[in-house]
Nucleic acid binder design. Sequence first.
DNA 1: ATAGGGTTAG
Length: 590
Amino acid sequence: MEHRLISLNCCLNHLIIKNLRSLLNERLTFDQAKQIHAFILINGLNHIEPLLVRQIVLSTRIFSTSIARFVKQILYHSRKPDAFSWSCAIRFLSQHGQFKEAFFLYVQQQRLGLYPSSFTFSSALKACAWSVFKMGGLSIHAQVDKYGFCGCVYVQTALVDLYSKLGDMNTAQKVFDKMVEKNVVSWNSILSGHLKSGNIIEARRVFDHMPKKDVISWNSILSGYAKMGNIDEAFSLFQRMPERNFASWNALISGYVDSGNIESARSLFDVMSQKNSISWITMIAGYSKWGDVASARELFDQLGEKDLLTFNAMIACYAQNSQPNEALQLFNEMLEADVKFQPDNFTFASVISACSQIGDIRSGSWIETYMEKFGIEMNDHLATALIDLYAKCGDINKAYDLFDGLRKKDLVAYTAMIFGCGINGRAVDAIKLFEEMVDNQIYPSLATFTGLLTAFNHAGLVEEGYRCFSSMKDHGLVPSNDHYGIMVDLLGRAGRLEEAYKLIKNMPMHPNVGVWGALLLASSLHNNVEFGEIAAQYCFKLEPDTIAYKSLLANIYASVGRWDDSRRLRKIIKGKNSTKIPGCSWTEVT
DNA sequence: ATAGGGTTAG
């Protein structure tokens, strides 16, 4: 009796395992995977776990942190850790952009004393390459040598790719030259390394010497020429390539966009028999870059199935072209669309920028709530956008906190912070930041000087502002209308209207309404009819519909007792309907 | 399994 029971038990166990194994050859949903794991645990079938991990990795199309957490949980609680599941998990994480996590798992695997495979190394190297994690990459390279994997093509190729991405072409070339066996991927890796470091000549040499080229080799060199502005060579390569895919077309379109030839880009786009999401984004972003919001929107509306990326491109288009209300409105539409999208970092970068342009004090806390709600992780891009927003809302300390927390302080970050100090009247801090920036070999741009001049303006430091303005040419910069506008404002507020007018008269370009408006405002502050009239005439001509200019001049007339002139203007103002632009309220979103 | 095209901040 007992004997038969044991035998029956064995039989059942065998059946279960057979069934489980076949189950683990099919695609799983996350829920199924969880159920199977529970079953495995209850029945003590732990040796099946690696198969489960592998199948989860293979089945996952849409990555989520909860899946990653689940996989890690299996690894950490496994009674018998095995190298295969760990390698699968490392690959899984590095494929889905979780580079830090992937590297962490690699380190854990080493600590557990599990023997790494070529699979482990290439995955962990990929994670370091993509996250430009030099220390990690170098330490893995050392382990590769130690474990004797330096003869494996996959691992060597991953190393070439690592050093290419790190920008260390000397080492990349050294590893590459030592390779006995090279495949197309190895060649492509060294090729893209040269292209990334801007060495098109070496890249071309490699390309011409490749024993075998695939569509990726062609695309790489094509986009290299397109990016350096040699669109003719890019086009010639495009014509000669034996096989084309989406990326080939998109790279060429992008090249035409960058060279300012949006018509050719559009013709190519129209000729494409099949377009993918990236083709549409490239075109929308192209129109955005050259300020053609209407054409961008037209394309966006033509697109039947919109995805997150196309929404991002269109929202960015509005934000970049000073239409913050439209940007926010589209953001709302995106959240309320039939197919809901989870906004990501890209979406929020534009949305924050839009809020900042609107200058709504309440935006800051709303944004933070929203970002938390969607699980958005802070990065330097977002932090820089938030610096600007908080500074505009007057919370300079919060802006400083964000600035101090940046991984890398670049030109845009410094400029945002300088501008933030500027509008908050912290001229000394702005100068300090500027000097720090120059010390760090970051070259100021026109926007940086807008921030600096704003600082001097708010502090009323006329001479310092003048000196700063004059120093722009030492940095190879030609002041724009914006800079002249600030200078006119600075001089004008100080009562130096004559000087301000002279500055305008000596401008190398046509002054815009901002410049004349600054003079008009200053004239009204000092009740100066002479310059007020001159400035006003220009403002009326440039922006006939803006009543504020007429009202300023009316005030000037009234202040000197010219009541008739004042009344005449007030009549005109009353006749005009004040055109109020309906805004889209950010706070209405829930 | 390893690689190519696109969207973000002042």
